[in-house]
Amino acid sequence: MSVSPQEAILSARGLTKEFFGFKAVNGVDLDVRENTIHALIGPNGAGKTTVFNLLTKFLSPTEGKITFRGKDITGFKPADVARLGLVRSFQISAVFPHLTVLDNVRVALQRKAHLGTQFWRSNSALDRLNDRAHELIAAVGLDEYAALDAAELPYGRKRALELATTLALDPPVLLFDEPMAGMGAEDIGRISDLIRRIAKDRTVVMVEHNLNVVADLCDHVTVLARGEILAEGDYDTVSSDPRVREAYMGTEDE
């Protein structure tokens, strides 16, 4: 089923990004419906992460327009769109390595609590954040690691911590760049369940190579190839499209 612009919380029209004459993204039209899980997939070099970076303003488009809740955000900076409620994660885990899991989440909660990132505050001043921090830590399966420094976590657990710190901002739209990368089967199952739960009252956009995850989780799939949209629809629709099969031929399904 296609998504109309009227239903969309996040849209792009004619989105194009050119690097020294090469169009990494070329004329992409995208509509993400509110309270759904929307995947961007495609073979290596398809332009998925570039689209992701354009939507979250870490790159500026050469051409095109991006709207969030009907507001033109094309000229916004990354911090501007984050304040509006469009919050992303990264392929590489971004946590404070020498803070504990609990303190990483409490730092993320400070903004929501209108405390800023005031590292000089005493622990007692931040204790009121503990209950919510522990809820988020439990949600991503890190209860037993709460007192451990982030640097000591295995890679998959660091990714789970990053999801907890992203959720701490309580944004209406979450953008996950390969959230399952580097995770074992147990972690993938746990984080998939978490994403499914949070999408009940939020919108999720994700770049994901694991097609089993996409098939299990996503309501709508946009397939990119050579910087352009190749197919759209639910997973069964796009996976049966001969053009999609051809685009993936010879690539590794991760």
Rank of each mutant, 00 (worst) to 15 (best):
T117Q: 03
L142Q: 03
P154S: 05
G189C: 11
E162A: 05
E135D: 13
L109S: 09
E186I: 09
L161G: 02
T100C: 02
K200W: 07
W120G: 08
A108F: 08
I198V: 15
N123H: 13
P171E: 13
A113V: 13
D193S: 15
L163T: 13
L115G: 11
N104Y: 01
L148Q: 09
P172V: 10
L102F: 10
R197Y: 03
L153M: 01
A185V: 15
L169Q: 08
F96Q: 04
N104V: 00
D103F: 05
P171L: 13
A146M: 07
S124D: 11
R128T: 14
R106H: 01
L136M: 09
A146Y: 12
V207Y: 06
A150W: 00
L102S: 08
Q110M: 13
W120D: 04
D131W: 03
L115C: 12
L175M: 14
D103Y: 05
D149A: 03
R111N: 12
I188M: 15
W120V: 05
A108D: 05
I188T: 15
L126K: 14
L109F: 03
H98F: 06
E152M: 00
E162W: 03
V105H: 02
D170L: 12
H209G: 15
L99A: 07
D103T: 04
I188V: 15
R157P: 02
L115Q: 11
G141M: 08
D193C: 15
A138G: 13
G141W: 02
H209T: 15
A125M: 11
D187C: 05
A181E: 04
T166S: 10
L153Q: 00
F119G: 02
G189Y: 06
R132K: 14
H134D: 08
V95A: 02
L167H: 06
E178A: 14
V207T: 09
L174G: 13
L126N: 13
R157T: 01
L115A: 07
L175I: 05
A133N: 10
E186D: 14
E152A: 02
V107K: 00
W120K: 03
V173K: 12
R111V: 09
E162Q: 04
E135W: 03
A138Q: 10
D149M: 06
G141P: 13
L163R: 02
T203F: 14
A168E: 00
A160W: 09
K200Y: 08
D177P: 10
R190V: 05
E208Q: 09
L136E: 12
G189A: 11
L99R: 07
H114A: 14
A168H: 02
R121I: 04
S192A: 11
H98K: 09
L142Y: 01
L129V: 13
L99E: 06
L194T: 00
P97K: 07
A125V: 11
L161F: 05
